[in-house]
Write a protein that binds this DNA or RNA. Structure first.
Length: 420
DNA sequence: TCTGGGGTCCTAGGACCC
DNA sequence: TCTGGGGTCCTAGGACCC
């Protein structure tokens, strides 16, 4: 048996922790640049605000119902997430962090317990210790526990836990769940399935292996077996190192000049390099891309990317910046209104597996010492106190974030104040 | 008219997730 | 005026090898 624990409307719940007045009041959290709604409280969902809708399209609704709007505050959400995960860890010996607000728990060692009661305990503890409401779904496979979680949210809201303990309880949720709402079925497969007469998950489990294999590849087949109660998706108790790392942003305003783009690319590269060092990896390839805003029909459109191969795998910030700017130089064209750019490192290898080159001019030992020292300083004094010249200090491509809450739990200057 | 057989690696594109 | 950011896996087809 496996449990999926999911934080309810996570970003909204994090904001409410420090604004308890907003309990029962509609809350929306916006994406970077205050672009789209990416989290909605139940009250906001009830107003018809859809996931991913641009803010300007719902502005009237937001104002009319006095919805409390926040810019996304990932520093805060990341820290609250850590606290939730650390608490979950106290319940089981094996768990998998699935996303910022979800974790799979291995319940197999608890076979003699009443798992429904355990789910209720987990929910109560997280609410009491951290203040975040969670829902728990328990079933035989990852896919079924995902479904149980959704079923709990829809049908057993007050308990907030659903345990598909036997065939009857499993069938109930299979019948309730439409194919489009199965974890692993997106828009394309949902269309395929409904066109072929499969309406609910209960219909889908009757499909033949051959048909599913043929139309949905082995991924679909695994999913089918999972729904029949046969665990078929691997468990990852330890997060494997990333195979691709990307840092990209839309700009707060459109950008035309190369200098500013260089500054952005240098900063995104520094961020990728830091992520590489944190997972003890190096890259042999760096890609730079930029694009104009496709929604501005009045603008000339341009989108390009360039991959630069490195002679020796590295995770050194200045070295990577050098290659990234080389890539940018090859794709930059004057006269366009750029809306976004980004940096991706691919072909990532563990840092012990670097193949050195005979013609290498870099002093890699020195690089390593410099990186280590700078990372330490930046951890101690705030995220990017020490930067390379190309990164600049005055950020000319700043993000819009008009409704940003404070970093209550991670920054000493932003602690919440309480009047007694 | 007729043009082998078997393998690997790489890439682009499509599907999905939060 | 205004439309997010960061990932994974699988497959088909082409290049290349012997």
């Amino acid at each position: 048996m496996y449990a999926l624990v999911d934080c309810n409307n996570f970003y909204c719940s994090c904001e409410r922790l420090f604004a308890p007045k907003l309990e029962n009041h509609p809350v929306v959290v916006l994406s970077n640049n205050d672009g789209c709604a990416i989290a909605r409280s139940e009250e906001a969902k009830a107003l018809g605000i859809q996931m991913g809708t641009p803010e300007y399209m719902i502005r009237d609704t937001l104002q009319a119902h006095n919805v409390k709007v926040f810019s996304s505050n990932y520093t805060l959400y990341g820290d609250i997430s850590d606290r939730v995960m650390r608490t979950l860890e106290t319940f089981v010996s094996k768990m998998e962090l699935y996303s910022i607000d979800e974790a799979f728990l291995d319940m197999n060692e608890m076979i003699y317990q009443d798992l429904l009661q355990l789910g209720i305990d987990i929910r109560r503890t997280i609410k009491k210790n951290i203040g975040i409401p969670v829902t728990v779904g328990i079933a035989n496979t990852k896919t079924l526990s995902k479904m149980a979680n959704r079923y709990a949210k829809k049908i057993h809201k007050d308990v907030g836990v659903y345990w598909a303990a036997n065939k009857d309880l499993t069938d109930r949720m299979l019948e309730f769940t439409e194919v489009a709402d199965i974890w692993g079925i997106g828009a394309q497969y949902a269309k395929l399935l409904t066109n072929n007469g499969f309406k609910t998950a209960k219909d889908f489990v009757q499909a033949s292996d051959d048909w599913v294999r043929q139309h949905m590849s082995v991924v679909g087949l695994r999913l089918l077996h999972e729904l029949r109660g046969q665990p078929s998706i691997e468990w990852e108790y330890e997060a494997p190192p990333k195979k691709n790392i990307c840092t990209s942003r839309s700009f707060g305003t459109l950008i035309t000049d190369k200098k500013t783009l260089e500054q952005a690319v240098a900063n995104y590269t520094a961020s990728c390099a830091l992520k590489l060092r944190n997972q003890k990896s190096c890259t042999r390839e760096i890609q730079v891309f930029l694009k104009t805003n496709q929604f501005r029909v009045q603008d000339k459109q341009y989108s390009a990317g360039r991959t630069v191969k490195l002679p020796v795998a590295t995770n050194s910030t200045p070295e990577l910046i050098k290659y990234a700017l080389k890539g940018l130089n090859l794709i930059y064209r004057p006269g366009y209104n750029y809306q976004k750019c980004g940096v991706i490192v691919m072909d990532i290898i563990p840092q012990e597996q670097i193949q050195y080159s005979l013609f290498d001019n870099e002093d890699r030992k020195k690089q390593k010492t410099v990186s280590k020292t700078l990372d330490k300083i930046n951890i101690a004094f705030g995220k990017d106190l020490v930067r390379y010249a190309k990164q600049g200090y005055e950020k000319r491509y700043k993000l819009r974030a008009e409704y940003l809450s404070k970093r209550y739990t991670t920054n000493i200057d932003e602690l919440p104040l309480i009047k007694i």
